[in-house]
Amino acid sequence: MNATFAIAGATFGEAVRKRILMVILLVALLIILISPAFEPFAAGRGARTLIISFGFGVIQLAGTFIAIIMCTSMIPTEIERRTIYTILSKPVQRYQFVLGKFFGAVGTLGFMYLMMGIVFLIASRMALGGFDPQILRGLLMFFFQSSLLAAVVLFFSTFVSPLVNYFLSGGVFLMGNLLSSFLETIQRNPEVTPITRIPVQLLTVILPNFANFNVQNPIINPEQMLTDETAYLVQTIGYAIVYIALLLVASMLIFNQREM
């Protein structure tokens, strides 16, 4: 376990030193910080909608980019630089290496979400004169969304090149954001035959569903009455953890069999 955390620590240190990730973070922080400038454009509730939705949009986008850029090159770079041989020649198992890399990535994402979250809360308080604790719920769900995406990217990075991984992970993220609404649309349409519906249903339960984490709409429109909100959040977080575990086990399986 010590080896896992040592690798995680090193991965975290390496990630926060990566200029591209820091640039994305700084740009996101700057944009969130200036979001109160939208306030004069719309009065009252309109201003709230603008500022909160903009903040969530920036954070989600930054989180997605950070997860993909950070994790795509994580394992391939170690192989390319041959530093992986140094690591694996020590008493470190391959699964510990994969786990360490993932925890390092999640730690980095946590740090970045913390930074963006603090700035977002300050900005929204500056603009709206109050602290909305519901924002934390949205941030938590986005953090789990990015962590799941990081696991997807890490899984692909065990067997494809970084360039292919960018497109593959981006595609899975896009699909995972669309599947639920697509399934809901075809379920409501009585003309859709089971031949079309069943494959979509199967894909929805097999592929990682990123739409589950997009809970920002009721926070932006607080009049909405939600049903079993806590149960939904708990199940969705549980889903993220189980799916991440699934991807990590699959990554270990592939990485263990890989010739190096």
């Binding site: 929805t204 709409n217 889903y239 270990m252 399986l253």
Partner: peptide, 27 residues
């Protein structure tokens, strides 16, 4: 590991099937 993958796949599918009706209702 293969058994773990199958078990985790089934658990996540079960969770997703529970989440989906709530997602439809709320989001």
């Amino acid at each position: 590991l293969w058994i773990a993958i199958v078990v985790l796949l089934l658990i996540q599918a079960g969770l997703q099937m529970r989440i989906f009706p709530l997602w439809v209702r709320n989001y």
